[in-house]
């Protein structure tokens, strides 16, 4: 390094050299560093998530017996209700299979639910992603659907050995096929720019002109099985207003998404049963 250069000039020179080196680095090396750094920090995020679990465990430890007993009773009631619901769902499923067979309808893939903890949330203006505590080790693959009790969460964007990144439906780059409740024509849903301190939103387009939505009579936008990613009928959001598009052929509208999307702690990844490999567990 030349001796007569100032500290700043030397730094600049170094940075330029480094950038040049970066420019000529083969892409597989770059990809390699990406994987290494991603996998390297994954255990830290996972560890922090376990710490959070531990914290909530100790919080519960401090609860009174009365609280725990009443919580247990509530849970058993809920369980009983779900057992009944399960039976109803089973019989409806059988009926559905029968009708599908009767009308010769194609059957859509079934899914296995892989419940995972959320360990990191990155909800910025430019992207909205979650990192979850399960990865390739649980058979998760990019593109798989992610849901929660309130409906659609998003799609698996990338998968690491022990963690996966999920792109939320509120992310500006998210796009999915949906349909309105009681209408099976597919529409296009896109995530949107989400202003801070407010519930997330998205937009829906290519809505047929005969559909009506109003503040008094909002319509529910649900996932469409036609897209091949999500099962049918899971809530994406609610539409309170539809406006005609410029060509007069379609309508567009704002979709109000579930505010819980921003504070999710647990989600479920839908793994298509036929593609599921042996996770080796």
């Amino acid at each position: 390094m030349p001796r007569n250069l100032t500290h700043q000039a030397k730094s600049l020179l170094l940075v330029v050299l480094l950038l040049l080196l970066w420019w000529f680095t083969p892409s597989f090396v770059k990809r390699g560093t990406e994987v290494i750094f991603s996998e390297f920090q994954a255990p830290a995020w996972t560890g922090m998530s376990y710490l959070k679990d531990l914290r909530s465990y100790w919080t519960n430890w401090g609860s009174s017996k009365e609280d725990l007993i009443s919580a247990g009773m509530n849970l058993s009631r809920l369980n009983a209700a779900y057992v009944v619901r399960n039976q109803q769902v089973d019989s409806m499923e059988r009926e559905l299979r029968r009708l599908e067979g009767y009308f010769n309808l194609p059957s859509y893939p079934e899914y296995q639910y892989e419940v995972a903890r959320v360990i990191k949330r990155d909800l910025t203006a430019w992207w909205q992603v979650l990192v979850i505590r399960k990865g390739i080790n649980y058979g998760i693959e990019p593109g798989q659907a992610v849901i929660f009790s309130g409906g659609v969460v998003g799609r698996v964007q990338s998968v690491g050995a022990y963690t996966s990144t999920v792109e939320l439906i509120s992310s500006p780059h998210f796009r999915a096929a949906g349909h309105f409740e009681s209408d099976d024509r597919p529409v296009e849903f896109r995530g949107g720019i989400n202003p801070g301190l407010r519930a997330p939103t998205g937009t829906v387009s290519t809505v047929p002109v005969d559909l009506v939505a109003s503040r008094k009579d909002p319509v529910r936008l649900t996932s469409s099985k036609l897209g091949g990613i999500f099962p049918d009928g899971l809530t994406i959001g609610w539409v309170y207003n539809l406006e005609p598009s410029s060509d007069g052929l379609f309508q567009t509208g704002k979709v109000m998404l579930d505010p819980r999307l921003q504070s999710l702690r647990e989600i479920a990844v839908l793994i298509p049963i036929e593609t599921r490999g042996d996770p080796g567990r």
Partner: peptide, 10 residues
């Protein structure tokens, strides 16, 4: 159409 909407990145 629905399949492409869902599976072709933006």
């Amino acid at each position: 159409y629905a399949r492409l909407i869902a599976q072709v990145p933006l």
